[in-house]
Simulated assay, not measured.
Amino acid sequence: MPHEVRAVVATAKGEPVRVETISVPDPGPGEALVQVQACGVCHTDLHYREGGINDDFPFLLGHEAAGVVEAVGDDVTDVAPGDFVVLNWRAVCGECRACRRGRPHLCFATHNATRKMTLDGTELSPALGIGAFAEKTLVAAGQATKVDPAARPEAVGLLGCGVMAGLGASINTGEVGPGDSVAVFGCGGVGDAAIAGARLAGAAKVIAVDLDAAKLETARGFGATDTVDASEVDPVEAIRDLTGGFGADVVVEAVGHPAVFEQAFHARDLAGTVVQVGVPDPEMRIDIPMIDFFGRGGALKPSWYGDCLPSRDFPLYTDLYLQGRLDLDAFVSETIALDEVEEAFAKMERGEVLRSVVVIGGGS
């Protein structure tokens, strides 16, 4: 029997989102029905509303979420009704050759739910295959990762996208190790998570780079040992000065802009690694002389979703959060209701918040 629930829907390009009553079907084989407790407001949701992803309107927005499994379909064994879960937008199989080699971002068998949620009979396109600005949502069971229910939904739900992207950029992609120097360009939610990840991995020096002094101060709270205001100084030279003239061992580009990427490229040590986790526009291009690329060692590595394996990483970082070793609460700028998402988009664009988090049910 379909479930009638309230949800945030983007019906047309650039139009304000609306809270509508949608229909969510019971789960089919390999699917799970989840009661959403909390969902973060991510830039990707705004990109959907603006038509920046595709034009498959209407969209059911929201994807950084935690909640409780209400029902599962046939052939589901990893989660069961009553489990507390964090949702992920890449339901990796965990079993193919890419996953077994520790490369889940190359998984050959990612999947979403096949049954469709609808608005007045029209099929909805769920953001990143999730659609969690809703009282309930339907996902592939592999998109629901069981974690410790003692965790606060508003905090651990953020592992579902931006925070995991940043943590993974440092730990999984950048392979930051004890004693390393790390520079992070861009101190929004993803950049701050990269800073936190670098400190978790044992980096001795973590340099935060941004144009906004307030964001740089916030970055210190996540573990930055030094800050560089790129509106006042050349960040490349500043990073070299802070690293004995060598450049950083790992540089994380969390902006998604060619000019920033070029700065990151030149701010690394000759044998260092550049990790790009900032999402660029499709039209952007990188123009670096080949001799510069050839003449420097190290590596240039894109990081998609922090190269994470949700079944491995979400429980791990939830446990670190509960142990007080990873402050996920610090990413939650405010909690809001479903009908405040449009206002949250405006705050996000103005740089006033790291994350607004919609609390729907069961949050603290």
Rank of each mutant, 00 (worst) to 15 (best):
I22L: 10
A299D: 11
L300N: 02
P310M: 09
A144P: 06
L309T: 08
G244A: 08
V68S: 05
P126Y: 03
G51T: 11
G174M: 01
L167E: 00
C96L: 10
G28A: 14
D281G: 11
S364Q: 12
V255W: 03
L309D: 15
K301N: 06
G177I: 01
E154S: 15
V69R: 05
D74G: 15
P104K: 06
G131Y: 00
L33F: 10
L138K: 12
F108W: 08
E342T: 04
D269K: 11
L60M: 08
E175I: 00
A230N: 10
G142L: 06
E232D: 12
D269R: 14
R6F: 01
V209A: 08
D55V: 02
V182P: 07
A134H: 11
L316W: 11
A330F: 02
T218L: 14
K13V: 15
E352G: 05
P258D: 04
S364T: 13
A91M: 10
V79Y: 02
G244M: 06
G102C: 08
F294R: 03
S364K: 12
D241E: 15
A330S: 14
A214T: 13
E70L: 15
G306W: 00
P25T: 07
P81Y: 09
Q35H: 12
A259V: 13
G186C: 07
V279W: 13
K13R: 15
D229S: 06
I291L: 13
A344Q: 07
V156D: 10
G191I: 09
V209P: 00
Y305V: 02
V357N: 05
Y321C: 03
P2G: 03
V9S: 08
G28K: 11
F133T: 06
P149C: 05
E70Y: 00
G256Q: 07
E15V: 13
G166Y: 07
H47S: 14
L320P: 00
G278S: 13
A150G: 06
Y48C: 08
G179S: 09
G94N: 12
S231C: 02
G363R: 03
S364G: 14
V279L: 14
R18V: 15
V209C: 09
D229R: 12
G324A: 06
V182W: 08
R6T: 01
R240K: 15
G298R: 04
L138C: 11
R152Q: 14
A224E: 07
A248C: 08
L200Y: 05
G197S: 10
L158R: 13
T137S: 08
A264F: 06
D281R: 14
A238M: 08
V76A: 10
F294D: 00
P235F: 04
Q37L: 04
D55I: 02
M1H: 04
D75P: 00
S356W: 00
Q323S: 13
E342Y: 04
Y321T: 07
